[in-house]
Amino acid sequence: MEQILSFIGNNITYIYLIGLMIFVGIELISHVPSVLHTPLMSGANAIHGVVLIGAIIVLGKAEATDYFSIVVGFVGVFVGTLNVIGGFVVTDRMLEMFKKKPKGGNK
């Protein structure tokens, strides 16, 4: 019990952050027309590519002789970039099609 309480106490900012972000995420999606669900899923998909930053950090601190970390980290950065770039480009391609028809008043 003591441990749990101190864990919460030490990480209170994180807990606030996570709690608020969860609500933000729910709010953002709840009121979206189903038309946009696929692009939105794709957009969210691109955003979790932020894991790329973790891959950069881990590769960045690998020792020059630590070939395992360098190789695995390299693959990590590569696939992370795929996620980010591919995700945003695919989303843009989908949304490009919606933009052509600005006079669509019926949402």
Binding site: M21, A44, H48, V50
Partner: peptide, 27 residues
């Protein structure tokens, strides 16, 4: 991705990850 944010004390990973985690679940 949010786990990575915890690990590296990295706010943008944490925020992005949690955001997608919750938005994705609702979707």
């Amino acid at each position: 991705a949010a786990c990575g944010g915890f690990l590296y004390d990295n706010n943008v990973m944490l925020m992005g990850g949690v955001l997608v985690g919750s938005a994705g679940t609702i979707l």
